[in-house]
Protein backbone atom coordinates (compact mmCIF):
# COMPACT_ATOMS: atom_id res chain seq x y z
CA UNK A 1 0.00 0.00 0.00
CA UNK A 2 1.33 3.45 -0.87
CA UNK A 3 1.07 6.37 1.54
CA UNK A 4 -1.73 7.77 -0.59
CA UNK A 5 -3.63 4.46 -0.36
CA UNK A 6 -3.53 4.93 3.40
CA UNK A 7 -4.88 8.46 2.99
CA UNK A 8 -7.81 7.13 0.94
CA UNK A 9 -8.46 4.31 3.41
CA UNK A 10 -8.30 6.69 6.39
CA UNK A 11 -10.97 8.89 4.82
CA UNK A 12 -13.25 6.11 3.56
CA UNK A 13 -16.89 6.78 4.34
CA UNK A 14 -17.57 3.23 5.50
CA UNK A 15 -14.83 3.37 8.13
CA UNK A 16 -16.00 3.08 11.75
CA UNK A 17 -16.21 6.49 13.45
CA UNK A 18 -15.79 7.45 17.10
CA UNK A 19 -19.44 6.67 17.78
CA UNK A 20 -18.90 3.10 16.52
CA UNK A 21 -15.88 2.66 18.78
CA UNK A 22 -17.70 4.09 21.77
CA UNK A 23 -20.78 1.94 21.19
CA UNK A 24 -18.83 -1.26 20.60
CA UNK A 25 -16.31 -0.82 23.38
CA UNK A 26 -18.38 0.79 26.12
CA UNK A 27 -21.89 -0.31 25.16
CA UNK A 28 -24.75 1.01 27.25
CA UNK A 29 -22.43 2.25 29.96
CA UNK A 30 -21.58 5.39 27.94
CA UNK A 31 -23.36 8.51 29.17
CA UNK A 32 -22.93 11.50 26.92
CA UNK A 33 -22.12 14.92 28.37
CA UNK A 34 -22.71 18.05 26.35
CA UNK A 35 -21.42 21.58 26.03
CA UNK A 36 -18.41 23.68 26.88
CA UNK A 37 -20.29 25.83 29.46
CA UNK A 38 -19.13 28.90 27.56
CA UNK A 39 -20.73 29.06 24.17
CA UNK A 40 -22.32 25.91 22.74
CA UNK A 41 -22.29 22.17 22.31
CA UNK A 42 -20.06 21.26 19.37
CA UNK A 43 -21.31 18.07 17.77
CA UNK A 44 -17.97 17.44 16.06
CA UNK A 45 -16.80 16.39 19.52
CA UNK A 46 -18.60 13.64 21.41
CA UNK A 47 -17.74 13.10 25.03
CA UNK A 48 -18.93 11.47 28.20
CA UNK A 49 -18.30 8.95 30.93
CA UNK A 50 -18.36 5.18 30.57
CA UNK A 51 -17.35 1.99 32.26
CA UNK A 52 -14.41 -0.09 31.10
CA UNK A 53 -14.23 -3.52 32.74
CA UNK A 54 -15.92 -2.16 35.83
CA UNK A 55 -13.92 1.05 36.08
CA UNK A 56 -15.05 4.57 35.11
CA UNK A 57 -13.32 6.33 32.23
CA UNK A 58 -13.82 9.62 30.39
CA UNK A 59 -14.29 9.14 26.66
CA UNK A 60 -13.86 11.90 24.07
CA UNK A 61 -14.02 11.52 20.32
CA UNK A 62 -13.85 13.65 17.20
CA UNK A 63 -16.88 12.48 15.26
CA UNK A 64 -17.31 12.78 11.50
CA UNK A 65 -20.77 11.21 11.30
CA UNK A 66 -21.77 7.99 9.59
CA UNK A 67 -24.09 9.25 6.85
CA UNK A 68 -24.56 12.54 5.05
CA UNK A 69 -27.12 13.88 7.50
CA UNK A 70 -24.93 13.07 10.48
CA UNK A 71 -21.85 14.35 8.74
CA UNK A 72 -23.48 17.71 8.16
CA UNK A 73 -24.67 18.03 11.73
CA UNK A 74 -21.21 17.09 12.99
CA UNK A 75 -19.47 19.48 10.60
CA UNK A 76 -17.61 16.50 9.08
CA UNK A 77 -15.60 16.10 12.28
CA UNK A 78 -14.03 19.57 12.13
CA UNK A 79 -14.41 21.08 15.57
CA UNK A 80 -14.89 24.71 16.50
CA UNK A 81 -13.21 26.22 19.58
CA UNK A 82 -16.19 25.17 21.72
CA UNK A 83 -15.49 21.55 20.76
CA UNK A 84 -11.94 21.73 22.08
CA UNK A 85 -13.19 23.57 25.17
CA UNK A 86 -15.79 20.85 25.79
CA UNK A 87 -13.02 18.25 25.50
CA UNK A 88 -10.87 20.16 27.99
CA UNK A 89 -13.79 20.52 30.41
CA UNK A 90 -14.28 16.76 30.36
CA UNK A 91 -10.57 16.11 30.80
CA UNK A 92 -10.44 18.42 33.84
CA UNK A 93 -13.46 16.59 35.20
CA UNK A 94 -11.66 13.28 34.68
CA UNK A 95 -8.67 14.66 36.57
CA UNK A 96 -10.89 15.71 39.46
CA UNK A 97 -12.50 12.30 39.75
CA UNK A 98 -9.26 10.45 39.02
CA UNK A 99 -10.45 8.51 36.02
CA UNK A 100 -8.35 7.98 32.89
CA UNK A 101 -9.12 9.70 29.59
CA UNK A 102 -9.41 8.03 26.22
CA UNK A 103 -9.58 10.14 23.05
CA UNK A 104 -10.58 8.88 19.63
CA UNK A 105 -9.15 11.11 16.91
CA UNK A 106 -10.69 11.39 13.47
CA UNK A 107 -10.66 14.82 11.85
CA UNK A 108 -9.36 16.47 8.73
CA UNK A 109 -8.49 19.41 10.98
CA UNK A 110 -9.87 22.13 13.22
CA UNK A 111 -12.50 24.14 11.35
CA UNK A 112 -11.39 27.21 9.39
CA UNK A 113 -14.17 29.77 9.38
CA UNK A 114 -15.30 33.14 10.67
CA UNK A 115 -16.91 31.89 13.88
CA UNK A 116 -13.96 29.63 14.63
CA UNK A 117 -11.55 32.56 14.36
CA UNK A 118 -13.79 34.95 16.29
CA UNK A 119 -14.02 32.52 19.17
CA UNK A 120 -10.30 31.79 19.24
CA UNK A 121 -9.56 28.53 17.48
CA UNK A 122 -5.84 29.02 18.06
CA UNK A 123 -6.32 29.89 21.71
CA UNK A 124 -8.59 26.88 22.30
CA UNK A 125 -6.09 24.45 20.82
CA UNK A 126 -3.17 26.11 22.62
CA UNK A 127 -4.96 25.81 25.96
CA UNK A 128 -5.59 22.11 25.40
CA UNK A 129 -1.93 21.47 24.59
CA UNK A 130 -0.84 23.30 27.71
CA UNK A 131 -3.39 21.79 30.09
CA UNK A 132 -3.14 18.23 28.77
CA UNK A 133 0.60 18.24 29.35
CA UNK A 134 0.09 18.38 33.11
CA UNK A 135 -3.23 16.56 33.47
CA UNK A 136 -2.91 14.42 36.58
CA UNK A 137 -4.55 11.37 35.10
CA UNK A 138 -3.59 8.92 32.34
CA UNK A 139 -4.48 9.98 28.78
CA UNK A 140 -4.56 7.65 25.79
CA UNK A 141 -5.26 8.84 22.24
CA UNK A 142 -6.22 6.50 19.43
CA UNK A 143 -6.17 7.73 15.83
CA UNK A 144 -8.94 5.83 14.08
CA UNK A 145 -9.03 7.70 10.77
CA UNK A 146 -7.65 11.10 9.91
CA UNK A 147 -5.36 13.02 12.23
CA UNK A 148 -5.34 16.51 10.79
CA UNK A 149 -2.71 18.79 12.30
CA UNK A 150 -3.37 20.99 15.35
CA UNK A 151 -7.01 19.95 15.41
CA UNK A 152 -5.90 16.38 16.07
CA UNK A 153 -3.01 17.25 18.38
CA UNK A 154 -5.47 19.12 20.63
CA UNK A 155 -6.73 15.68 21.70
CA UNK A 156 -3.38 13.91 21.50
CA UNK A 157 -1.04 15.32 24.13
CA UNK A 158 -1.26 11.88 25.69
CA UNK A 159 0.84 9.34 27.56
CA UNK A 160 0.49 7.00 24.62
CA UNK A 161 -0.75 7.55 21.07
CA UNK A 162 -1.93 4.58 19.04
CA UNK A 163 -2.94 4.46 15.42
CA UNK A 164 -5.10 2.14 13.42
CA UNK A 165 -3.10 0.53 10.62
CA UNK A 166 -4.75 2.75 8.00
CA UNK A 167 -5.06 5.92 10.02
CA UNK A 168 -2.96 8.96 9.11
CA UNK A 169 -1.51 11.82 11.14
CA UNK A 170 -0.06 14.87 9.46
CA UNK A 171 0.90 18.50 9.95
CA UNK A 172 -0.96 19.46 6.76
CA UNK A 173 -3.26 17.64 4.33
CA UNK A 174 -1.40 16.15 1.37
CA UNK A 175 -3.59 18.28 -0.92
CA UNK A 176 -2.62 21.44 0.95
CA UNK A 177 1.04 20.48 0.88
CA UNK A 178 0.96 19.74 -2.88
CA UNK A 179 -0.77 22.96 -3.76
CA UNK A 180 1.46 25.14 -1.60
CA UNK A 181 4.77 23.54 -2.46
CA UNK A 182 4.27 22.55 -6.06
CA UNK A 183 1.19 24.60 -6.99
CA UNK A 184 -0.22 21.32 -8.19
CA UNK A 185 -3.01 19.53 -6.29
CA UNK A 186 -2.41 16.62 -8.69
CA UNK A 187 0.74 15.81 -6.74
CA UNK A 188 -1.22 14.68 -3.69
CA UNK A 189 0.16 11.14 -3.85
CA UNK A 190 3.72 12.44 -3.91
CA UNK A 191 3.01 14.80 -1.01
CA UNK A 192 1.49 11.94 1.00
CA UNK A 193 4.77 10.08 0.62
CA UNK A 194 6.91 13.07 1.62
CA UNK A 195 4.91 13.97 4.72
CA UNK A 196 5.54 10.60 6.44
CA UNK A 197 1.97 10.40 7.61
CA UNK A 198 1.32 6.64 7.78
CA UNK A 199 1.20 4.67 11.02
CA UNK A 200 4.35 2.78 9.97
CA UNK A 201 6.30 5.98 9.33
CA UNK A 202 5.12 7.60 12.54
CA UNK A 203 6.00 4.51 14.57
CA UNK A 204 9.52 4.66 13.15
CA UNK A 205 9.76 8.35 14.08
CA UNK A 206 8.69 7.52 17.64
CA UNK A 207 5.54 9.65 17.38
CA UNK A 208 3.24 6.74 18.26
CA UNK A 209 3.56 3.76 20.59
CA UNK A 210 1.40 1.20 18.87
CA UNK A 211 -0.14 0.25 15.54
CA UNK A 212 -3.52 -1.47 15.76
CA UNK A 213 -3.98 -4.07 13.03
CA UNK A 214 -7.19 -3.79 11.05
CA UNK A 215 -8.64 -7.24 10.44
CA UNK A 216 -10.30 -7.78 7.03
CA UNK A 217 -13.65 -7.90 8.69
CA UNK A 218 -12.98 -4.85 10.82
CA UNK A 219 -16.11 -5.30 12.91
CA UNK A 220 -15.33 -8.81 14.12
CA UNK A 221 -12.29 -8.71 16.35
CA UNK A 222 -11.04 -5.16 16.44
CA UNK A 223 -13.26 -3.76 19.17
CA UNK A 224 -12.84 -6.64 21.63
CA UNK A 225 -9.08 -6.70 21.33
CA UNK A 226 -8.93 -2.92 21.56
CA UNK A 227 -11.09 -2.97 24.67
CA UNK A 228 -8.68 -5.40 26.34
CA UNK A 229 -5.66 -3.39 25.28
CA UNK A 230 -7.08 -0.12 26.64
CA UNK A 231 -8.04 -1.74 29.94
CA UNK A 232 -4.58 -3.31 30.34
CA UNK A 233 -2.88 -0.01 29.52
CA UNK A 234 -4.90 1.95 32.07
CA UNK A 235 -4.26 -0.78 34.63
CA UNK A 236 -0.51 -0.37 34.09
CA UNK A 237 -0.71 3.44 34.23
CA UNK A 238 -2.81 3.43 37.39
CA UNK A 239 0.20 2.42 39.50
CA UNK A 240 2.22 5.44 38.32
CA UNK A 241 2.07 8.55 40.52
CA UNK A 242 0.60 11.68 38.88
CA UNK A 243 3.95 13.49 39.21
CA UNK A 244 5.80 10.67 37.48
CA UNK A 245 3.09 10.45 34.83
CA UNK A 246 3.44 14.15 34.00
CA UNK A 247 7.21 13.88 33.91
CA UNK A 248 6.99 10.95 31.49
CA UNK A 249 4.47 12.77 29.32
CA UNK A 250 6.66 15.87 29.20
CA UNK A 251 9.66 13.79 28.19
CA UNK A 252 7.60 11.97 25.60
CA UNK A 253 7.19 15.27 23.72
CA UNK A 254 10.48 16.81 24.85
CA UNK A 255 12.42 14.34 22.73
CA UNK A 256 11.16 15.71 19.39
Amino acid sequence: MSAYDHVIAARANDRPTSVDYITRIFGDSFFELHGDRRFADDKAVIGGIAELKGKPVTVIGLEKGRNLKERMSRNFGSAHPEGYRKALRLMKQAEKFRRPVICFVDTSGAYCGIGAEERGQGQAIAENLMEMMTLKTPVLSIFIGEGGSGGALALAVADEVWMLENAIYSVISPEGCASILWKDPGKTAEASECLKLTAQDLFKLGVIERIIREPKDIESRLFDSLKNLIAETFERKSSISPEKLIEMRYNRFRKF
Binding site: A126, L129, M130, M133, T134, S149, G150, L153, V157, Y169, S170, V171, I172, C177, I180, L181, C194, L195, K196, L197, L202, L205, V207, R249, Y250, F253, R254, F256
Partner: peptide, 16 residues
Protein backbone atom coordinates in the same frame (compact mmCIF):
# COMPACT_ATOMS: atom_id res chain seq x y z
CA UNK B 1 5.62 21.38 6.54
CA UNK B 2 9.06 20.29 5.36
CA UNK B 3 9.52 18.73 8.79
CA UNK B 4 6.18 16.95 8.70
CA UNK B 5 4.85 15.63 11.98
CA UNK B 6 8.01 16.65 13.83
CA UNK B 7 7.00 20.26 13.27
CA UNK B 8 3.57 19.55 14.77
CA UNK B 9 5.22 18.00 17.82
CA UNK B 10 6.90 21.35 18.53
CA UNK B 11 3.50 22.77 19.40
CA UNK B 12 3.11 20.23 22.21
CA UNK B 13 6.74 20.53 23.29
CA UNK B 14 6.76 24.33 23.56
CA UNK B 15 3.35 24.34 25.25
CA UNK B 16 4.61 21.86 27.83
Amino acid sequence: MQEGILSLMQMAKTSG
